[in-house]
Every structure is written in structure tokens, then in C-alpha cells.
Nucleic acid binder design. Structure first.
Lengths: 207, 207
DNA sequence: GAGATGGGTGTGGTCTGACCACTTAAAAAC
DNA sequence: GTTTTTAAGTGGTCAGACCACACCCATCTC
């Protein structure tokens, strides 16, 4: 028995509990003692689970008050991972590669789902230097209308920045090329413009 | 006093310790009791820190043996965040779409990284009906050599199955077409064969 | 001598009970 | 009615006690 560690089980239960009760950002979750009693486990095990979730930035704890669900987009763990782990060269490479591929996927999606009027308006903003790389792709993510991809991308983006690689310089012209290609619904041109933006050679070994 | 929670301080100390001693993947870190003594804190606080790092995938603990620095291939938290995200999102469509796109991305990657001999051998297995959909794409993931993508895919696959959508029937011929296209390093043919496998129309609104 | 056996020791896993520090709100004092 | 005091609830931390498991090594068996 006891194959699964108790604290992991508690994490699971918490997730179920949050889902069942429809709790959302800012809501309070049961106290440590109550959880301990309700789940028939020691309070220390409950704490192990809560501390882990806290470090992940999923919950927030205030002494004397309680524990609350948090908007987890916070850096918290990104910073931690940045300083802690990402020494693994292969992992870094995977992050960069994955981020690029997802961006390309979303460009493809956006191409078919984009609203011409919005695109036109966005082009003007880009032309006026009012959009940076982040905002540009955030918009692409919106247009691609795939929340799951967007979520994953947000995480990867934070990793990416924490890696502190070559800072992408601002490339207005590449942005405009991409938008134009999207407007013409030309996949090949879109990807070509993207590769130019990211300084990628055409799909060879390195994406 | 005690503005900073003890367990966070321990995380910090651990990081410093690992850095100072030059510990790397697979190395053992001091036992909980030793850390507790060396840092003048309770063992439960040490455990809170270790459990948090474990949930992040930074360390691995083995009962009776000790705690070890883990082979971190940029993941784990994707797993966790993934489940948290997917719980309230419930976007079946996004799951299917994302899974398909990732599979296609990995086909592209695999195309350039594949080992001809392995491919030949795999083809034989497929021809002999020894490979199902899961195994097929698991192999593709291996060949694409991007562990991060592989992790995300594994999660999505599980969700996909739990969605209980139309069960993909076994399509040996589509598999063989894909492998053949990969062999010829023909991206368009590869994707066409994939679309056939998944019953997708060419990149229209629905992927 | 080679192999099997069985403690002993160290390690993580868990629970319990005890304080402390802090917040909040109800009760008491004015 | 306002202020002060008190009590209850909550997270933060520690110490000690067991348990389950892995490993090493002396011992026993053949």
C-alpha cells in the first residue's frame, strides 16, 4: 500500500475540491486543520502539499487568515527554475524549440481565424512601433483561439526570458511581413517571415 | 522577525549548497535529519522545502535511500500546470487540436532527425501489425528528440482518451504512408498522410 | 570459499501534540 | 455608541515517536 505519497494525494484532492466547489482566484480554501481532519491525514502532510503548491504560485497563504487560491501566472517558479535548474543545455534547447514551433502553429491557426478588420488595425499599431514581441504574439495567440496553446505558450515564454538568451531585437519589418502574409493567407510566406524574425534557417535540423 | 518562511530559506540554502558543492544530476543531497541539524530548523520544515522541490521535479526521493538531484528535462510542472489548467478549461476542442498540431510538429522534427535504419525496422513492425496508435506516435516523439513536447503530448494523449471521443480505428496503411513520406523527407506528403490518418481536411478552419 | 541469511543502521514517510505569532470578530467595559 | 479586551481560528515551527524500506556486513550454511 501507500504507493502514492500522501501529500500528492492531497494535491489531487485539493484539485478535485476546487473543481467541485467551483472555487476561483481569491477564494479561500479550508484550513490546514480542517483538511487534515476531512482527509484523515496528518496536518504535516497537508502542509507539505500546501507548501508545494505555494512555491508553485498556485495558492497564497496569510498567517492568521488562511490559504487562498491565487492567479498563478506569477513568476515565482519561473525565477526559481531560472536560477536553479536550467543548466541542462538540452532542456534549454527544448524550450526554445518548443516555443518557436508553437508560435508557428498558432500563426497557421490565426491565418484562418483572423478578423480582417482587427488585423488592419493591428498593422497600424505595429507600424507605429506600439507593439513589442510579447504583445505581438499574445495577439497571435488570441486570434488562434486555442486557449490551451496560449497557456502553454505563456509558461514557455516566461522560461524563455528567464534563460536570458540573446535578447531579440525589435524587428518591426518582420512583424509587418508576417501580418501581410497572414492577410494573404499565405502559409509559406508567413513562416518565412517568422523564420526571419527569429533568425531561423529553413527547417533543417535546428528549428 | 521571521518575515521569510523557514522553508523558503531552506530552498535558498539548498540552492547555495548545490552550487557550492558542485552537485549535479544524480548526486545525493544530505538527509533530512542532517539538513535539519545543520540549518538549525525542524525536520518538518526541511520536508516542506523538499516536497515543494519534488513537486517541481527538481529532486527525487527514494525511501530508504535518500534524496537526489533529478534529471530535469524541463517538465513536471508542465504536467502539474497542465492538469490545473485543463480542469476548468474543459475545452475539448483545444485538446484535440493541440494534440494534432503537436503530432504534426514532431513529425516535422522527426523527419530531419530520424535514423534510417531504425525507421526501416519500425516499418517492418508496423507492417506486421505490431504497433498501435500510441506506440506509433510515442516513437515519433522519441525521434523528434524534444522531451518537452513529448511530455506535453503524453498529457494531452491521456486527456484525449479520457474525453472518449471517436475511437480511432487502426489504420496500418496511413502509418506506412507516413513512414514512407518521412523516409523521403517530404513534409507535404507526411502531413497529407497524417491528415488522412486523423480524418482531417486540409488546413481549413478545423485542424 | 561461495552463497544465503539476518540484523543493524540510515533514510524517507507519516502522525501527533505542543507552542508561537497573527488576524478577526465577538464580548465586555466605558 | 465607542473603545477596549478577550477568545477563537489560522498559519508557522518544532520535537518526538513509529513505520517501511534499502543497504551493508557479519554470520551461518553448504
Amino acid at each position: 500500500m501507500t504507493n502514492t505519497k500522501v501529500y500528492l494525494e492531497i494535491v489531487k484532492q485539493l484539485r478535485a475540491m476546487i473543481s467541485a466547489d467551483g472555487l476561483k482566484t481569491g477564494d479561500k480554501i479550508p484550513s490546514e486543520r480542517e483538511l487534515s481532519e476531512r482527509l484523515n491525514v496528518g496536518r504535516s502532510s497537508v502542509r507539505e502539499a500546501l507548501r508545494a503548491l505555494e512555491l508553485l504560485g498556485l495558492i497564497e497563504t496569510r498567517r492568521g487568515e488562511g490559504t487562498f487560491i491565487r492567479d498563478f501566472r506569477g513568476n515565482q517558479l519561473v525565477q526559481l527554475l531560472g536560477t536553479f535548474i536550467l543548466q541542462d543545455e538540452k532542456a534549454k534547447k527544448d524550450v526554445v524549440e518548443t516555443k518557436n514551433l508553437i508560435e508557428m502553429d498558432c500563426l497557421r491557426l490565426a491565418m484562418y481565424r483572423i478578423n480582417p478588420r482587427q488585423l488592419e488595425k493591428f498593422k497600424e499599431q505595429v507600424a507605429a512601433d506600439q507593439v513589442d514581441d510579447d504583445e505581438f504574439f499574445y495577439r497571435i495567440m488570441e486570434w488562434s483561439d486555442n486557449h490551451l496553446f496560449a497557456r502553454i505558450w505563456l509558461i514557455l515564454k516566461d522560461y524563455y526570458y528567464s534563460l536570458n538568451l540573446t535578447k531579440d531585437e525589435y524587428k518591426r519589418n518582420s512583424f509587418l511581413s508576417i501580418l501581410e502574409a497572414l492577410e494573404n493567407k499565405n502559409e509559406e510566406m508567413t513562416l518565412e517571415a517568422y523564420r526571419n524574425l527569429r533568425n531561423l534557417s529553413i527547417s533543417t535540423d535546428k528549428y
